[in-house]
Write a protein that binds this DNA or RNA. Structure first.
Lengths: 336, 336
DNA sequence: CTGAAAGCGCTTACAG
DNA sequence: CTGAAAGCGCTTACAG
């Protein structure tokens, strides 16, 4: 184990400045109630020594870890959106004077054990939740124990309200808007390729698509939804093939994610048809694809800062729905 | 601020078990030197109370934060590989009884400030470094201050040895192997598409490609390297176009990353030629691309556990070079 | 405005 | 094998 030089402590600052340790602490935590002269004297000492209070000592005294926990989900491909989100989340937490502690946990109820340990050890003050699932067990568990948290994504409970504060992007709204613009561009047969057994967000997006198709009076036969087997790109290509083989092939296909959209697009390219395709997330894939993928950007920074704000509020019943932003590229040349 | 129920402390365990607090501490930290009867008595108390020691209190006493710092780089697309790496890293750190604290920092020398703060506040015991650049300032800075760290990636110093322990994947070796297999499959004109102003890893990969081409006696004119403008997919497609427009177009193209490979591949598809293409990283993109992308998998878990091991060792002069694994898919049907 | 006292919840030698 | 003492480096009321 490497030897580290002794760190500077409050005691040394006090002795250098010729004041008590308590006064140094006041300079740090309540400068308004210390004499201006003392203040500058102490601050000079802090400066020369390069003093910074020990996080752990402070934590022990204040009973706040200064850390927020965030569980990394293991979902390949999925990282496409979550990595930028994590970055934004980290910055937002830092802006609040805390740091983010990341951890891994088993999926579902088993994973609660990890949350319980973190709470029991007082390793974190709160949690940020993402990758929420329907009736996610974490939310009520944390609420019951009065552990502060904020969720990115709703849990779509069978009954009752969302258990705890949440932020989400209005997937239904964004997909409805896509349909509306597609229709304005002359499309009448608009299909949807989603996940098999769609989770909350997937269902929400599909709901928005279907709702707008109906509102516009498009025929049900012309607006069909198909799941992409395995939720994979290849699966999406298969689904697209099936749609295009139909008697009334769609002229536009909404995909529930960029990854699925790329699968759909590859099938469209293969056939050389002019079907318009849209994705969701504005991940690297969207700019990666030949011609570019029209997609929905999630306001990452805004999501992150809103989440951090919700953590610190007493009210556990707040939910914030943010709008997604349609980003137009080559795969669907949507107008204003 | 939400009210949290009072956590269980060592004191309560001691009183329930009818022993001193010190003995409870011994049960936790040196069970071998406590009487078996006392042991089970105390353990029973721990069990009933669901006691877990406070991380901060323990940290203060042991002078170890129990946290390892890791800086999230902001590089779009790049997340393709780094997200799985972060997950593996988190698990490896957890296996060692610590947690990962993630943070953001300005690039280059300015970012050192953030490292300095974390050290001054004793918020972390060590750092894991990634996204290393040539002559990365962080490594010597940490070494000088005797802050333990381990680096994923070399810093390729102008002179002297690597400053501090590192783990890296042998990019040169993997690319040489690709060339060798390509040649065995009959290819004689093997080009390379890399980054403009390649960083250490990019140069390393290119070096491996060139070395093997020369070793096999392939003509220099047939083995040309071209940078992808902007390091983008579109840039890679341009570079591929230029290569294919040459008088002696390559029959195989190595790309320095999956992202570049996808760009190359799109151009190859567009022209309908049968040029073989390989990537690097085995990211989601590799399975995303039509037909699949032949690429090099980095042994993520092994990298992570090796890094954690290096953190805890006193010797600062160790380096570990791991082999990449060639994953064959449709874009280059390489044999055994 | 400033300092002496107590305490946050542990661990680390050190007596017994 | 077990416990009393001291200490980790802060903050929080509370006197003065």
């Amino acid at each position: 184990m490497t030897v580290r030089e002794q760190a500077v402590t409050l005691r040394q600052v006090a002795s250098l400045a010729g004041v008590s340790r308590q006064t140094v602490s006041n300079v740090l935590n309540a400068p308004e109630r210390v004499d201006p002269d003392t203040l500058s004297k102490v601050r000079a000492a802090i400066e020369t020594l390069g003093y910074q209070p020990s996080r752990t000592a402070r934590s022990l005294a204040t009973r706040k870890a200064g850390l927020v926990g965030y569980c990394l989900a293991r979902q390949p491909g999925h990282s496409l959106f979550m990595d930028p989100f994590l970055h934004a989340m980290t910055e937002a937490i830092e802006a609040s004077g805390r740091h983010l502690l990341v951890f891994t946990a088993a999926p579902g109820v088993d994973g609660l054990r990890t949350y319980a340990d973190l709470v029991a050890q007082r390793a974190v003050d709160a949690f940020i939740l993402s990758d929420t699932v329907d009736d996610d067990p974490r939310h009520p568990w944390l609420t019951d124990r009065r552990v502060p948290f904020a969720s990115f994504g709703r849990t779509w409970p069978e009954q009752g309200d969302e258990p705890g504060p949440w932020v989400d992007v209005d997937g239904a709204g964004a997909c409805a808007e896509l349909v509306s613009k597609l229709a304005a561009a002359g499309h009448e047969r608009i299909a949807f390729v989603g996940w098999p057994d769609p989770v909350g967000a997937g269902r929400d997006r599909e709901r928005g698509w279907r709702g707008e198709c109906q509102r516009l009076g498009l025929s049900n036969e012309d607006c069909v939804a198909l799941p992409a087997p395995a939720g994979s790109m290849a699966g999406a290509a298969l689904a697209a093939g099936e749609l295009l083989d139909g008697r009334r092939p769609p002229t536009a296909i909404l995909a529930a994610s960029d990854l699925l959209a790329v699968g759909v697009l590859s099938e469209v390219h293969r056939r050389g048809v002019d079907t318009w395709v849209t994705g969701f997330d504005d991940s690297v894939l969207a700019s990666t694809v030949e011609g570019g993928l029209t997609t929905v950007r999630q306001p990452t920074d805004q999501i992150a800062t809103t989440l951090v704000g919700l953590i610190d509020e007493a009210r556990a019943d707040r939910g914030v729905l943010l709008a997604g932003e349609i980003v137009v590229r080559g795969s669907a040349r949507l107008g204003g």
